[in-house]
Design a protein around this nucleic acid. Structure first.
Lengths: 133, 133
DNA sequence: TGAGGTAGGCACCTTCAGGTAACTACTTCC
DNA sequence: GGAAGTAGTTACCTGAAGGTGCCTACCTCA
């Protein structure tokens, strides 16, 4: 029948919306940026190329698993390059591509916003918390 | 003793870094933006004020729980205002503040980047997947 | 000779964010 | 009179992300 319960309609809408979101480039990029480690790796590499172990030291606290996973994802998206030098202890260098560099600039814009407006957000929070004591 | 195993040093570094990240305004903002529903609510409200039920319809698929949670967080950070009109079915309007508007503009910058570079990212992915077949 | 570095891979395990369902209290529409 | 809307709240539950530990294989330094 043509009639659906509200729950059924919501379910249908949810499925459609999920598909829409997965196809949306903005959403996909946000998924990338939102990754805790992606932003840190981008920031670390923005000063120049780095080796795997340099990264793991600079980004203290990252597990080898997540570092590898993050780097692979960035490499797949063409944001970093991975260069293997087959010397005796193998040496692997990671470097931002031009595309990766432009994304890092975007991150800088976010950073700038955060720094200039942080006081306002902080003040709003204190006020809100005080009012809803 | 002054000597620590590598694992202990990693653990220590992780704890320190976590504290550092929680204090970092950029990271806090990224946590906000990275929230799936926050970005959608911001986008929805950028066209003008909306009622609770309008939002839940426009952002199809959001559960009432998450919508409330998201709106409360945004209100707390001073990014949206919540106005209750005590008419007979109570009416609640949500609207972006000036601060929220500036954040929405930042989101627009992200959107623009995503749209202009999506093809490059997509091409890089296809190439990567082809090479690592 | 064994401890640590270099660049990860693999499998298990836990946690918690977010979804689901049910409820409020009052109203209007069919 | 019951179904649906308005604006949520509360309790419960699951799935997937991410952390931990253990492994390779070769090298160097003390």
């Amino acid at each position: 029948m043509a009639t659906m319960t509200a729950a059924q309609k919501r379910e249908q809408a949810r499925t459609d919306y999920d598909a829409f979101l997965r196809a949306c480039p903005t959403n996909q990029l946000l998924d990338r940026l939102s990754d805790k480690w992606v932003s840190l790796v981008l920031a670390a590499l923005s000063t120049g190329p780095m080796r795997y172990s340099d990264l793991s030291r600079k980004i203290a606290g990252v597990s080898p698993k997540m570092l590898t996973q993050t780097l692979r994802a960035l490499e797949r998206d063409g944001l970093v390059t991975r260069t293997v030098t087959p010397s005796v202890p193998v040496r692997v260098d990671y470097e931002l591509t031009e595309l990766g560099g432009s994304l890092a600039q975007l991150m800088t814009a976010v950073k700038t916003w955060a720094e200039t407006h942080f006081d306002e957000v902080h003040a709003a929070r204190e006020q809100y918390d005080a009012e809803n004591a």
